[in-house]
Design a protein around this nucleic acid. Sequence first.
RNA 1: GGCCCGUUAGUCUAUCGGCUAGGACGUAUCCCUUUCACGGAUGAGAGACGGGUUCGAUUCCCGUACGGGCUACCA
Length: 512
Amino acid sequence: MDRRVRVRFAPSPTGPLHIGGVRTALYNYLFAKKHGGDFLLRIEDTDQNRFVPGAEEYITEALEWVGLKFDEAPHIGGPYGPYRQSDRKEIYRQYAEQLLESGNAYYAFDTSEDLEDVRKKAEQAKMSWKYDPITRQSMKNSLTLSQDEVQKRLDNNEPYVVRIKLPRKDEVRFHDEIRGWVVVNTSQMDDKVLFKSDGMPTYHLANIVDDYLMKITHVIRGEEWLPSAPLHVLLYRYLGWEDVMPKFAHLPLLLKPEGNGKLSKRDGDRLGFPVFPLEWKDPKTGEISSGYREAGYFKDAVVNMLALLGWHPSDNRELFTMDELVEAFTIEKVSKSGAKFDVEKAKWFNHHYLMTKPNEELAEALQPTLVANGVAMTADRVAIVCGMMKEKVQFIPELFTAGRYFFFNPESYDETVVNKKWKDFTTAILTDLKDALNNLADFTAEEIEKTFHHVVETQHGKKPGEMMQTFRLSISGVGGGPPIFDMAAFLGKETVVKRMEKCFEMVKPAVS
RNA sequence: GGCCCGUUAGUCUAUCGGCUAGGACGUAUCCCUUUCACGGAUGAGAGACGGGUUCGAUUCCCGUACGGGCUACCA
């Protein structure tokens, strides 16, 4: 029986999605599209305590930004909705009851204080404690209490949870598409809560019910879910859905570049690079965490970089558009081990994509930076600047910071260049050059170059190399940049002459 | 602690028993460029360790070490 491929990305709206979550979503998307299937978003907000306002909007905006389009989602709708678990509250109870009736689950009346107590006692005895086939015999639940007692408590609306009733010793095995067969014995597991006293299901129940109802065929999620996968397999079995149980693929985690541990939301900006796709302002603290988008990353660079962090095609290709990724992606080629995030590689990708962008597009993207810095320049002129600068920078805003001299007169002059190149004869020659340039009818790169050679070589008998950098310095204030004659032509005669005069005032020749 | 997963250069990775271990980022040197970059060339740099299996192990098995995850009425 071949089913249409359907995958879901199921985040919990407890804050901004971090970049590892974006990768999980990306792999789901690639897999779905590769197989002509559906990609859905399901918001898992069963924990009302952890709800963060704005988080869901952030998630959809972030995924839209990187170019992942959902076929079904809370904000889009679809035939299997609603897609927000809090809106599906009524659905879950009947499945908890089904499990209760079939004897695969039971009521438990232990309060959180009760549980805390037994855990503390166990801890003092240096033992670990879990709610399992042995310990449940001494707890307050429908397995130990009389039927009347249970009914009485239920009738009195006493708070209760529903827990799965695990077999004492049973091997649960399932095939992971990335890791192969995984075997866990139920003796290592515990009777997880499926239905909470607040009337909401836990992740485990909601997840299985929704995946079943939404006809999910492949569960592609982070490795942190691997330990609870056996529980999920058991739930499919107890609910009688084993024949349509999705295939599992547990993705390796994204690790911090330094130190230990997986990349987490709390890493914020400490690491020196964004961990979030979009800038996020914490609604409680007002704290702002930077995002890839705001930091000047291109979405295609982010996608390309993310795709290669834990996945690799069999050939050595590294540059992929989204469509090419869809074409090339296979779950089998996802690696098993965690990947440390590498900022340098991320920058390289960005640089690569920046260089390949059309100048006009760069100019448009640079506009906000220019406005923020009080620069008013026509779009076509900005595009020319971008063309001259793009191979030298990695991020859009750097087109401005590294090419500041295109927009403002220099206020200082690179001292190392001055000390090294500014000789006693320099001012005199550059003054002659300035005057000659001032007399130019056509202020084009070619004419400027011709004039330069005439003044420097013919009139003063110097080598071009002796004057080139000081000429550049007198116009831009720095020692590097685009071809100087093009730059001068772009700036125009008036600006060039003024800037040179200003330079002569400011720069004192090094004592030789 | 217990359970699960993993382990090729600083980082991401290729290799489905034959390897002089390939590529990319980064790094070093050189070329191009009268600058900076881009581009090109070259170099340094890896199979955690110990046992097996095999004619032959990076590749298969076991153990150890190390790393990671999970161990909530959170997802």
